[in-house]
Design a protein around this nucleic acid. Sequence first.
DNA 1: TTGTATGCGTTATCAG
DNA 2: CTGATAACGCATACAA
Lengths: 351, 351
Amino acid sequence: MAAQTRGPGGRQPTINDVAALAGVSKKTVSRVINRSEFLTEKTRAAVEKAIEQLGFVPNPQARALAFRRNFLIALLHDNPNAQTVLNFQRGVLDAIKDSDLALLVRPVDRGSDKLLDDVRTFLEKQRPIGAMLLPPISENDELAALCEDLGVRYVRIGSAPLDDAKHCISSNDREVVAAAVRGLIALGHRRIGFVRGPAGFRSAAEREKGFLEALAEAGLTLPPELNAPGNYRYAAGIEAGEALLARADPPTAIFCSNDEMAAGVLSVAHGKGIKVPAELSIIGFDDSPTATHIWPALSTVRWPIREMGARAAQILVPDFLGPGAKVDDEDNVLPSTLVERQSVAPPPDRL
Amino acid sequence: MAAQTRGPGGRQPTINDVAALAGVSKKTVSRVINRSEFLTEKTRAAVEKAIEQLGFVPNPQARALAFRRNFLIALLHDNPNAQTVLNFQRGVLDAIKDSDLALLVRPVDRGSDKLLDDVRTFLEKQRPIGAMLLPPISENDELAALCEDLGVRYVRIGSAPLDDAKHCISSNDREVVAAAVRGLIALGHRRIGFVRGPAGFRSAAEREKGFLEALAEAGLTLPPELNAPGNYRYAAGIEAGEALLARADPPTAIFCSNDEMAAGVLSVAHGKGIKVPAELSIIGFDDSPTATHIWPALSTVRWPIREMGARAAQILVPDFLGPGAKVDDEDNVLPSTLVERQSVAPPPDRL
DNA sequence: TTGTATGCGTTATCAG
DNA sequence: CTGATAACGCATACAA
């Protein structure tokens, strides 16, 4: 504990108080704070002792003014999945916990035609060190260009590596989905339905690619009537389930591009008395809380979102996180993993 | 759109540029920015025109330094329910959208013995205008006292009014739960099980009060064997379901203190082949996404969390939100509402 | 009603 | 390696 938390006069101690106590100039104190290399071990020790004695905490507002930069990281998101956003926030906080940084959260509206103006105003006002873009807005190149233009560091989170590797943290959705579908095929499934994600989403495209890839490897194809549209929402899962399961020749397994839609398909199955997984296997994506809260628990793909948040902070502001935080730039793909639960089984024999 | 976004020399325009262009002193410009009353309509117009022309945006860092206060609202939370936190964030953003404020998010660890120190350091550094405390940490009186001590405005979110009305936004959990249980009784249920929330949580206590209240009104009691412990987690719901539904004389209805636990009870029912709602009615609390993603969709209580976020901002920083944001101080109880879906029905006749 | 001088707490410049 | 002085952009006190 600090000896005292107030400077002379009952105020918070300032850099001047520290300088006076240590018998140096305030610039020297500043150098200590900012870890300048040009310092005698002796003076550094003296200053640090004074800092400790006074319980001095540098004023971020003053630093921000002088640096023309706020010690903040902005999180820009328009993500429909609350758990994803919050887990990501946790990951970022894990990483910046011992730094001087704080996290600014900014929900945006990707549909708004004022999106770019909004973000520009926000960034110009807050002047954060860097910004993090969560999908789906991470796929917006104009947004990235805007950050570049404003001199705000940025990092984009995606489901596959984007153009610029050093600005991108990604998972390997395509590969994991392919692996999951291979598993289905290995169990004997041949008629496998697919519920798509929303058009224009990179994540949706990646998942579809992985799905088709695994099918192709096994010499299978996706019949158009088993390819259902979706938008990552529960209601779309309901519709897809109605469409796929009302058929005379329903699929024996359905891959859904996220858990919410999988839950929808599962509800339809329940309603129709179709037993899962005995008569129908279902796989989702996200490993959202829903996946374990429904019955039977959903086999799904876990997106390492919290780890991605931490990694994002590490590549965004490595110079603020202390020496232990260095990461390999090549190491920006964090693998998603298949989580096997109770919604998958071999197909019923009905040849 | 502004005529230009850069001042002389390619920098962002400052208050000096505005003053020069408008032919006034910078103090006058400052007065316009801060909505001083002592201004001629004419000078105000001239300044505003200059501001518009230059695309001037006041630098929040400089203002923060001068004001000794950052134009930020801090959201402190340690809430297990991601959707709740994110919806609350949305509500806050709804309210501060057109203000100069931004939202700082700070997850904390309520179990840590350093909680108070962490929050103190955070508030001293960031110097936000105010802080919002979400349950369960909103129930921590020391935290509120700390805010008071540091001169940080605060507002506590709770499931029932706390001591200090003007610092508290609350819902009426007790009343709504009582109403829900009355509904169960009206349908004919007499043996009604209860799955508790975690000990020491105000929300848990309120929900239990409401439950017992409704029972008492009808001359019923809660037999100890039908009163199951819980902690707001899915696994606790599973355990409670196992305990209650394995009995020879199971309840015909179960009220669960939140949706996650209700989902757990529902899973157990599915596993045992107990039909919901025909043989067992279930009610949850939260109206989380899970409530609609499980089958059958869960009757539950909707907590007006987004509205609470907006209201919290309104009572926290009314002076920053413009004239339209005034709210009645007495109006700080936002009613939760019963959402009736498919998990409730009359009890099976088995007399 | 408006302007002048000064302060907010820190960093940058540049000389020593 | 260190220090004096001037920014940084805005607000307050007090004068005019």
